[in-house]
Design a protein around this nucleic acid. Sequence first.
DNA 1: ACAAAAGTGTTATAGATACACCCATGC
DNA 2: GCATGGGTGTATCTATAACACTTTTGT
Lengths: 234, 234
Amino acid sequence: MPHTNTSSRADKGYVGHEVLAGVLQIRDDRLQVMLWQRAQEPDVHRWSLPGGRLADTEDVESSIRRQLAEKVDVHKLSHVEQLSVFSKPDRLPGRRVVATAFLGLVPSDTDPAMPADTAWHPVDALPPTAFDHELIVLAARDRLRAKLSYTNIGFALAPVEFTVSELRRIYSAALGYQVAATNLQRVLSRRGVLEPTGRTLPAGPAGGRPPALFQFTSRDLQVTDPFAVFRPPT
Amino acid sequence: MPHTNTSSRADKGYVGHEVLAGVLQIRDDRLQVMLWQRAQEPDVHRWSLPGGRLADTEDVESSIRRQLAEKVDVHKLSHVEQLSVFSKPDRLPGRRVVATAFLGLVPSDTDPAMPADTAWHPVDALPPTAFDHELIVLAARDRLRAKLSYTNIGFALAPVEFTVSELRRIYSAALGYQVAATNLQRVLSRRGVLEPTGRTLPAGPAGGRPPALFQFTSRDLQVTDPFAVFRPPT
DNA sequence: ACAAAAGTGTTATAGATACACCCATGC
DNA sequence: GCATGGGTGTATCTATAACACTTTTGT
């Protein structure tokens, strides 16, 4: 790739700006991240996050959505939010580039078509990653885990309609520990995050009661637990 | 641009990068923010946040700390953290500049010397502000309020030693509603955030029991309440 | 003694977990 | 009938809010 940094660092104040996304999805009951394998130096063959350069007419969120549209049909992204800036001067070899990192989510029932150099990898068993991209993946994972607790962000990981069992598997995979279906249902219902659709699925081959189907009441991010330790007087 | 496999638009633009901080302090029992008044166009006479251009050799956090040192003795900043990126293409007139915004905190018992064009303003009664700086101030306020609930961030607003009454006034001002001293003390103590120093202050002129002095057990930001709705099995 | 401010004891309430038990289906 | 998975009822636990009451000082 470009340059020997002969003139670049001397060009005072020129700071490149890129956007990168940790796009997460639950696949095979594991939290996985979308990565593509670099074909060129630097960091050849290492895996890196999708993204690219910020263009003139877009803000950072428009930019990451545009760039992801080249990898994944953008309509399949159920949620995008900003994480933070990664700006160590030497985070990339060559010219200086500041990155704005994002968390992106894809529902578990979609399987977006991706280029040949791109694949899903479990977040807890990452391949060798390029630059500081592993840090960004971990930041994305941590943000998701935190928000599962106090927001309705599960809507972005689950299909539109699902059984409580399916939702339990999704939450367990994302959080990294087993959650009980019984309490998951109750907590989310009491908060008004979840509601039954009235429909059910047929029982499985081994029998059993046919599961009811549920949906999220809202598909926009909402804080559902103010978790205010110091609660305003009622 | 190193390391993207996407071909984005031609590089017409030079994207500047600035860092800005909403520096907050409790003064006169109100949450106030440090602003300086612009002397030149654009937005003459409007009030704006301290900050400036990202230099070549620093990351964004080093940069904002350096720039604040020009306004406030940097050692008086008890906490600095990144908020988010503001990147609308037209957020400033003229050349495009992306801003990384920070929250900065100053303890209530310090009164940093500041330039003549700089003053503190209550966050709930801001003067006319420049560009998108009001948004950044509100983001700083909201971040502070959220973290008061589930972290020990109060250490950054309070003096090293304080009475529970003083702390109550600080929390009340920052949160925007009255908190009760009795419960404040208990919640923070049970979490191990607060501890008595063993010393007391003399009673006030009107009498009353002499208050005990307390301190925060740690002066680094720590999450004290995991507020995990889906708690890992014990 | 009395007023004032600080601090403690006690109860109430909310929101979660744990677990036993009942329900509906296929074979 | 019975195994299997789904769903509900109920007890328990934890943490905070509310408030009455006690403590310690100055005048």
